[in-house]
């Protein structure tokens, strides 16, 4: 038996569930549960802890939730094509450092708007580059995405720390940090508007464009996507590039908020983004996942974190709880696809 036949056989018997769940049913169920849980959590929190409703707390909550939703949106595309991007945290570190270094080193006398443009442009370029390398390796070496992204994350973090010697990079214009990163526009944090805009863009891509449909097709069944004449590898690579870009966007927002370029940001965010995607109903079997549920899941996770902080639960214990949640949701995902 050739390796190819063996692989096909394995895939048929073990990886692909015999019948796929109707995703519309899946969608309504996930959305409904998430909204109910979010409202319940908010109600309990506002009753138990009045500080929860303070304007500052809500603004912080919304800002972190938006940033988490942006990263998770990229992760969602990668999981839809049956991959995992373990390098998002590393990409964020790299982008933060690159953006800050470019802004701090533009020639004296450059206009503030141009300085910001160069910095942000360099940041996006760095993010896209990492995504492209990940995508090309996964598509053409045909190996597990998490091995590739584990390798690239080591390289990228090393690079970020090597460029800065581990020291934060200061010297960004105020117009970028205090007037944008920490700004509140119309009662809502700036990051929220950007997150909402991105969510809208991704909703349009997923629901109204062929690109979105092709990405689902490639994730749902790679072979049949190829047999229907799609250049499947192109959409595979595209998913990783999107993930690199969203990580870059999130990193730029976080860098603006902190006010310095840090080679250490993004630590727990990789795992959180995977957790958010899975909680948001993105199936580990590929081909299923909706941006609106991912956004709700990001809000839910940030609410949970906020609740644990207000209730003074140690932050390390949060990692334990998050780990358990992910495994349970993954188990539920398996049960669903099996029982149908």
């Amino acid at each position: 038996m050739t390796r190819e036949q063996r692989q096909t056989m394995t895939r048929i018997t073990h990886e692909t569930p015999p019948v796929r769940l109707d995703w519309r049913h899946h969608l309504t169920e996930t959305t409904g549960i998430l909204i109910a849980v979010i409202l319940g959590l908010m109600l309990i929190l506002s009753l138990v802890e009045p500080r929860f409703l303070a304007a500052q707390n809500l603004a912080n909550l919304l800002r972190s939730a938006s940033i988490l939703a942006i990263i998770s949106a990229g992760q969602m595309f990668v999981i839809i094509v049956r991959g995992f991007d373990l390098s998002v945290g590393a990409t964020m570190a790299m982008v933060s450092v690159v953006t800050a270094m470019v802004m701090a080193n533009v020639p004296e006398g450059t206009a503030t708007s141009l300085t910001i443009l160069y910095g942000v442009g360099a940041g996006f370029a760095a993010g896209a580059a990492v995504g492209l390398v990940n995508g090309l390796c996964v598509a053409y070496l045909k190996v597990h995405s998490f091995m590739v992204t584990l390798g690239t994350s080591s390289i990228v973090v090393g690079l970020a720390l090597y460029l800065t010697n581990g020291i934060p990079v200061y010297g960004m214009p105020r117009g970028f940090s205090s007037e944008f990163g920490r700004a509140i526009w119309g009662g809502l944090p700036s990051a929220f508007y950007i997150g909402a805009g991105l969510a809208l863009l991704f909703w349009v891509i997923q629901n109204l464009t062929t690109v979105g449909k092709y990405i689902y097709a490639v994730g749902g069944n790679f072979k049949s996507a190829v047999f229907s004449g799609l250049s499947a590898n192109r959409y595979l690579v595209m998913a990783y590039v999107i993930s690199g870009l969203t990580a870059a966007l999130a990193s730029i927002l976080l860098t603006a908020q902190i006010g310095s370029g840090q080679g250490s940001i993004g630590g727990v965010l990789t795992f959180q983004s995977i957790a958010v995607a899975i909680i948001g109903g993105v199936s580990l079997q590929g081909g299923v996942g909706k941006i609106e549920n991912v956004c709700l899941a990001a809000l839910f996770l940030q609410l949970l974190t906020n609740a644990m902080e207000l209730l003074r639960i140690q932050s390390q214990l949060q990692a334990v709880i998050l780990g358990l949640i992910v495994i349970l949701v993954a188990a539920n995902d398996i049960r669903k696809t099996r029982s149908v």
């Binding site: 995992f84 795992f271 390390q316 214990l317 990692a319 992910v326 993954a330």
Partner: peptide
């Protein structure tokens, strides 16, 4: 029957949390 690296990714966080706590 969950894919082993999702399980171990969860376990990685649980172990981190436990050892730090």
């Amino acid at each position: 029957g969950i894919r082993s690296f999702i399980v171990t990714l969860g376990a990685m966080n649980i172990c981190y949390g436990l050892s730090a706590t």
